[in-house]
Structures are given as structure tokens and as C-alpha cells.
């Protein structure tokens, strides 16, 4: 909740100092003496400009996002790796390292805010690149804190076939209720 919003009633009411004992009346009156402030219409016009500017920048950003992917990562060769995580009771993620065909393609250190976003259902695209058609191997190494706060390092891998279309792979970290251990898998998306 926003305290400033909640305080707005107070700040817009007649100042309490105004009603102090009369002996300080002049001082009090000064506290309330309103001086002209910048016109609200000036702010409204500026706000309109800013909103319109934001809209255009966002639209351009959308176009550049598409342009970048289509130019640099055409669908025929595109491969993307994502990372997701559920509630994370058994694993606190610190970093992940992704290799494809023995070549490191991504290494990422997580902030608390990013981990929280993952816990709440966010999915991070950790790598976007190009691969030739054929057989490939993905290896992901996760580090962090495992059950009971102990240092934890685990790897998972997947052999996959890259065809003519884009390939999407998801590194999924989940809690295994049965083993009370984290579970690391690679899922293929159609």
C-alpha cells in the first residue's frame, strides 16, 4: 500500500498549525500562505506528451525485438533455453551454467529478486542461439543451497534432435515431495 496516497487527505486539509494559539497567529498564517504553484494544466500537457512518447517507444521496442530475433536467430536454426522453478523449498538457486555440445553458452548468477520472480511463476529465457540441424547435447549445471542449507551442485543433460524449426528447451527445477530433494529436468517444448 502506498503511504503517500493514504496521506493525501492530510496534506490537503487545512494545516493544523493554522489553528494554534493566537499569539503565534502571524507565524501560523505564513505557513499556510499559498504561493502560486506550477499550473496543473502544465503537468497534464506534459503527462500527455510522456504517455504518447512511452507508447511510441514501446511500439518501436516491440518491432526491434522481432527484428532482432528474425535477423539474428532465424526459426530454422533457432534454439532457446528457458529456466523455471517452483516454490523452491528444497533448493535456493544461486547460478546456472548451460553448455551445448561441450561449449558453454550461458552462465547466470541470480539476484534475490529474480529468484522470487521465478518462484512466482516467471520463466527466464537464459539462452537464445543458433544450431545446425542434427543431434546435440545440452548440459546444465545448477549451484545453490540444497536441503538444510548445504551447498548443492547438480547437473542434468538432454540429447536432442534439432530439426528445421525452432527448438525450445526448459530447465525445470522442482521440489520432489517423495524424496524431499530438488529435482532437475530438461523439458522439450513443441
Amino acid at each position: 500500500m502506498s503511504s503517500t496516497a493514504m496521506f493525501s487527505s492530510f496534506s490537503s486539509r487545512p494545516g493544523t498549525e493554522l489553528r494554534r494559539p493566537a499569539r503565534t497567529g502571524l507565524l501560523v498564517a505564513l505557513l499556510l500562505a499559498g504561493t502560486a504553484v506550477a499550473e496543473p494544466t502544465e503537468f497534464a500537457a506534459l503527462d500527455e506528451d510522456v504517455q504518447s512518447l512511452k507508447e511510441e517507444v514501446l511500439d518501436l521496442n516491440r518491432e526491434l525485438f522481432l527484428l532482432e530475433e528474425e535477423l539474428l536467430f532465424p526459426a530454422n536454426t533457432q534454439v532457446a533455453v528457458f529456466l523455471s522453478m517452483d516454490t523452491g523449498n528444497f533448493f535456493g538457486l544461486d547460478s546456472v551454467q548451460v553448455s551445448i555440445d561441450d561449449k558453454e553458452v550461458a552462465k547466470y548468477l541470480y539476484t534475490e529478486r529474480e529468484v522470487e520472480a521465478l518462484h512466482r511463476g516467471g520463466i527466464q529465457r537464459i539462452y537464445l542461439g543458433n544450431l545446425k540441424a542434427g543431434e546435440h547435447e545440452l548440459v546444465a549445471v545448477f549451484t545453490g543451497q540444497g536441503p538444510h542449507g548445504r551447498d548443492y551442485r547438480r547437473a542434468t543433460s538432454l540429447d536432442f534432435e534439432k530439426g528445421l524449426g525452432a527448438r525450445f528447451l526448459e530447465l525445470a527445477i522442482s521440489d520432489s515431495g517423495a524424496s524431499l530433494q530438488p529435482d532437475f529436468r530438461v523439458r522439450e517444448w513443441e
Binding site: G121, G122, I123
Partner: peptide
């Protein structure tokens, strides 16, 4: 999921 990742941050 990607939208949510940015949204929550």
C-alpha cells in the same frame, strides 16, 4: 512465463 519473469521484477 517470460512476461511474468519481468512483471514480478
Amino acid at each position: 512465463g517470460e512476461v511474468l519473469f519481468d512483471f514480478y521484477q
